[in-house]
Design a binder for these strands. Structure first.
Lengths: 115, 115
DNA sequence: TCAAGGCGCAACCTACTGGTTGCATAAAGG
DNA sequence: CCTTTATGCAACCAGTAGGTTGCGCCTTGA
């Protein structure tokens, strides 16, 4: 099923997905190896295959990985797009904050040094 | 104390902090209002003051907010810097992924059309 | 000085997340 | 056809994150 498959995904899913160290490691391995299965991933991680599978499910829901069935294997690979989206979301947020802070600062200056 | 106060903070703290909807809301209010106290925040949120305080502690640990004591009040305001840092971290990650994906693609092309 | 407002700390509760084991199912390959 | 290998599903377990209440301490301001 590969996630919700809609282009406009909520950035919070990505944040939640990235908030776990094992999931970050999974992504790192997937990026390094160019793809892997839950079984092969579990071999190099301190969790069982089922544990990895659950993490992959979370990553898939966030759209950060894509699943491709090949015979009896299911191969996963990373997708940078949702990451880029989340970055844009954060950029908007940070910019808003900065504007507010500037506004506050200006206000303070206006109060103390009023011409 | 205002967080760990070191310039190079792990981006994962920011991710964890941002992964919670209430914390995102807290940040939104702080940015909109230009600062607030745990008590005033709790008034507009579906949690108690103590709940808000815990969230503020998490945000503070991530460096996303700064606490300023004013008499018997503690006023919090947002700090965009860790957000920017986290974005840079994500950018590095996304870029890495994209490079790997390109490498894989090139490899596939090379295999089929070897000159 | 004393009441009220605002915080901080600690104990406690609950739900969910991360993890496991066990079994069923499906594709490869002899 | 039977064995092996890989995945999928479900039940179950433990730790912790998010939330609450209760209480004590410190400022403010009348």
């Amino acid at each position: 099923m590969t996630g919700t498959a809609d282009g406009e995904r909520a950035p919070e899913d990505v944040l939640v997905a990235l908030a776990d160290p094992i999931r970050r490691e999974v992504l790192a391995v997937l990026a390094r190896e160019g793809g892997a299965t839950s079984t092969s991933l579990a071999a190099g991680l301190p969790v069982t295959r089922q544990g990895v599978a659950k993490h992959l499910a979370v990553l898939d829901r966030a759209g950060l990985v894509r699943a491709h069935r090949a015979g009896r294997e299911v191969r996963y690979e990373v997708d940078p797009q949702p990451l880029r989206q989340a970055m844009r979301w954060m950029d908007t947020l940070a910019t808003q904050w900065e504007h507010r802070l500037d506004a506050i600062k200006d206000l303070a200056e206006g109060t103390t040094g009023e011409a």
